[in-house]
Design a protein around this nucleic acid. Structure first.
Length: 795
DNA sequence: AGCACGCCGACT
DNA sequence: GTCGGCGTGCTC
């Protein structure tokens, strides 16, 4: 058999994992050896000489596991390349398929193979390196390959239709004609919001993109154009590609930025896989390092992929890439329209556009001749997708870099402990930026012990106050100097718990296992998990006792600031107040224009914003996120506190940070105060090692959700039994935790259970996961079970 | 996912 | 007697 040497790896593949229980003879195993991923694929011309029917391995765009073998009609055999979309008969109908390469005949003999019907495109939508990445993702995260591929493609290419070119051959751009929002627009919030956004992203952006961030911006920008504050342009794509307006490039770098740049340029020149951690304190100029690296890649004719946590919250970074590289950049945000998504995909695929900036899903962007991958804020939890294919984009970025021979830069002020451990083991090279740009000092961080500095009772406030005297004093002083304050608290609403004074019962959601939060502005109690809302009960629903309102949220902090410092101009920034993207941008713009003195907010205020007027940042309660039952709680707290603290003193004036807490001895709090990331990390790593948590182990979660509590519990227990029965000897170090009710045991009326697996390597867990997967066939459909590999949270 | 096949309730 | 409920299983 002539095919044998070419494809012998495929025959050996099934050894890797016992797949589904039946592992039917007709099915090509979905699990392929790693070698096969990089195996050279036979040229179609070779197959033409073979007299036996030419066979094709196809991933079908349906949620079925494994790859399928089809016969390839002779006239198609010559024109098929891996990654091409085809039409195949499947079941009684047809389905979209992805040609992955030639196949060997399936072992069972009496299988009648169907033939590929049609080729849907002349050149593959999927580049070679992406196929390898998607295959890895399908195996690692245990998700059907066809679905993985379909999910990665833009909607226009994930349907079984011929490829058509998405050709808005003219693109509409909005260009700002002023450098800041003029005061005469202060009475026109929509216009000032649109203009503020446009300025934030570099003064020039596709109309589509502004309209995405700010609903109705199309009309608003027209109005701005007639008033002379902006201009609308139509550009052919070719013209805008040539434009490449290089601007805003700082002349000199800090010595540290320079040193990092030299190393990265060397790595890019070497054109091999090299992973780096760029560990830089907030304000140290990481973005400029990324920009220079992308510039260098471009000069070598290579493409770059830049991943960021959330575009709407990082317009500055997007703006800098756009103003540096012009139309050489495709910005891939979460809510592009189908047409635009397809257009960007094709432009990147052709190599017309060489840089992609995008969120999590952009890790699958078909950047041509990939030279550089950057993951900014690599520790950010939003890189983990929590549905469908539950991938970690940062991890996949490293895999992709390895497969593509690209340089990978993970950037953060507070790297994930997983990343740090990779540095310690010598897998990633460390680049450090220890100093801020212009040698601005790090903000001073002071502790306010709430057990000592008791907040004084107010006149109006009916509940216990939370702002301590030192905090109020510092705020008043800062505002007096004409500077601005950010108050951070990680909880929305007014009070977070309503407790009966007599029977001690707290008011819970009827559908979820969580307490209802009182939102005074809406005069309702609201469930933050399912959205259920109801009027505020006057008294306890059980015993008619009076209700105490405990637990502090942003609404209450806002009210307290207003009461204590009546002259302060205060606004609140959380999911309730920033209900629309428009409101969000407007609020941020207004704060940036210094029309507000105090911004009270949740996580939203902690991310990448750059407000030079802010010199005081207060953390209202540092302990809230410490009590979460998750082994990463301390790490999250440290990240969050550091990030918030980093908002202070980004302008000329030095910054000051006050942290209120009832837990001054808590490790993350103490270490943040001392600006001691390394100390925190070492301590935390030691603890993780002792308890064999990641990065010293790999985890996988089996999550169950069901209508009926008993049924869900029994399924959970039976899956637990299956795992215990196949548990390797204790020496293998694999452990099962649970099955147990999830920490939030009910959401939207569904009972939740989970089972955690912990092992020294992912390979040690894979066989157990395969067993669970096989058992899924016998699980009643009323119970939904998903496998979450490398889970991001334990809830 | 679709779309079969397959055994138990209220309708012409 | 039949139409149809969605439980279970398969798709090269």
């Amino acid at each position: 058999m002539e095919q044998r040497p070419l494809w012998s790896e495929a025959g050996a593949a099934p050894a890797e994992a016992p797949t589904t229980r039946g592992s039917r003879a007709v099915r090509t195993s979905g699990v392929k050896s790693r070698r096969e991923l990089s195996a050279p694929v036979a040229a179609a011309t070779v197959r033409a000489e073979v007299s036996a029917p030419v066979l094709a391995s196809i991933a079908v765009g349906r949620p079925v596991r494994g790859e399928f073998t089809y016969a390839l009609p002779e006239e198609l055999a010559g024109r098929l390349e891996p990654g091409q979309r085809v039409l195949v008969p499947f079941g009684r109908g047809t389905a979209l398929g992805f040609y992955l390469g030639p196949a060997s005949p399936p072992p069972g003999d009496k299988v009648k193979l169907k033939a590929v019907q049609r080729v849907l495109e002349d050149s593959p939508s999927l580049p070679r390196d992406l196929i390898a990445l998607l295959r890895f993702a399908a195996v690692h995260y245990r998700y059907p390959l066809g679905e993985v591929i379909r999910g990665a493609l833009p909607p226009g290419l994930s349907k079984a239709v011929e490829e058509k070119e998405a050709k808005p051959d003219v693109q509409h751009f909005a260009v700002a004609l002023v450098n800041e929002v003029p005061p005469e627009l202060s009475r026109a919030p929509a216009q000032s919001a649109a203009l503020a956004y446009l300025l934030a992203v570099g003064g020039r952006a596709p109309l589509e993109e502004v309209a995405h961030a700010i609903p109705g911006a199309r009309e608003t920008l027209k109005k701005l154009a007639t008033r002379g504050f902006a201009r609308l342009e139509e550009k052919t794509v070719e013209a805008s590609v040539k434009e490449g307006l290089i601007q805003g490039r700082p002349d000199h770098l800090t010595p540290e930025q320079d040193a990092a740049g030299v190393v990265l340029r060397g790595a890019l020149d070497a054109a091999t896989f090299q992973p780096f951690l760029l560990h830089g304190v907030t304000g140290s100029g990481k973005t400029e390092v990324y920009l220079r690296a992308a510039e260098h890649a471009l000069s070598l004719g290579k493409g770059s992929l830049i991943l960021v946590p959330e575009i709407a919250l990082t317009p500055q970074l997007v703006g800098r890439f756009r103003s540096r590289f012009g139309a050489e950049v495709a910005v891939l945000h979460s809510a592009l329209k189908d047409r635009e998504r397809l257009f960007h995909w094709q432009a990147l695929r052709r190599g017309d556009v060489k840089i992609a900036v995008g969120v999590r899903s952009a890790v699958f962007a078909p950047v041509d001749n990939l030279g550089l991958i950057v993951v900014d804020e690599e520790h950010d939890p939003s890189f983990k997708q929590e549905e469908k294919l539950r991938y970690q984009a940062r991890d996949l970025a490293v895999v992709r870099g390895k497969q593509a021979g690209a340089v990978v830069v993970l950037g953060s002020a507070t790297p994930a402990l997983e990343t740090l451990e990779n540095v310690k083991r010598g897998r990633y090279q460390l680049l450090e930026l220890k100093h801020r740009v212009d040698d601005r000092p790090m903000p001073s961080i002071e502790l306010v012990d709430l057990r000592v500095e008791r907040p004084r009772e107010g006149v109006v406030t009916e509940e216990a106050p939370i702002l301590s005297p030192p905090l109020l004093e510092a705020m008043a002083e800062t505002i007096g100097r004409g500077q601005q304050v950010i108050l951070f608290l990680n909880r929305r609403g007014h009070s977070t718990v309503l407790l009966c004074e007599v029977c001690g019962l707290s008011l819970k959601c009827s559908e979820c296992d969580v307490c209802l939060t009182h939102h005074r502005s809406q005069n309702r109690v609201v469930c933050h998990y399912c959205g259920l809302a109801m009027p505020v009960p006057e008294q306890c629903l059980e015993c008619t006792g009076p209700m105490l309102k405990l637990g502090i949220g942003t609404e209450r902090v806002e009210a307290e600031v207003l009461e204590r410092i009546p002259t302060a101009r205060v606004a609140r920034l959380d999911r309730d107040s920033a209900s629309s993207a428009e409101r969000l941008t407007e609020l941020l713009a207004s704060f940036a224009r210094r029309e507000l003195d105090v911004l009270v907010g949740t996580q939203m205020v902690a991310k990448g914003h750059d407000f030079p007027g802010v010199t005081l940042v207060c953390v209202v309660m540092a302990d809230t996120s410490l009590s979460i039952p998750d082994f990463r709680a301390a790490e999250r707290t440290f990240h969050l506190l550091t990030q918030v603290a980093g908002r202070a003193g980004r302008g000329k004036d030095p910054g000051r940070v006050l942290v209120q807490t009832y837990n001054p001895d808590a490790e993350p709090v103490r270490r943040v105060l001392a600006h001691d990331f390394d100390g925190f990390a070492n301590q935390e790593l030691e603890w993780r090692k002792a308890l064999a948590y990641p990065p010293y182990s790999r985890m996988a979660a089996v999550r169950l959700e069901g209508e009926h509590p008993e049924q869900t519990a029994s399924v959970a227990r039976s899956l637990g039994n299956i795992v215990s029965r196949h548990m390797p000897p204790a020496s293998a170090g694999v452990r099962m935790l649970g099955p147990a009710l999830a920490p939030i045991s009910r959401i939207r009326g569904k009972t939740r259970w989970q089972l955690l697996l912990k092992g020294p390597t992912h390979t040690a867990l894979a066989p157990l996961l395969a067993r669970v997967e096989a058992a899924l066939a016998d699980v009643p459909s009323a119970v939904k079970v998903v496998i979450d590999v490398d889970p991001g949270a334990m809830l």
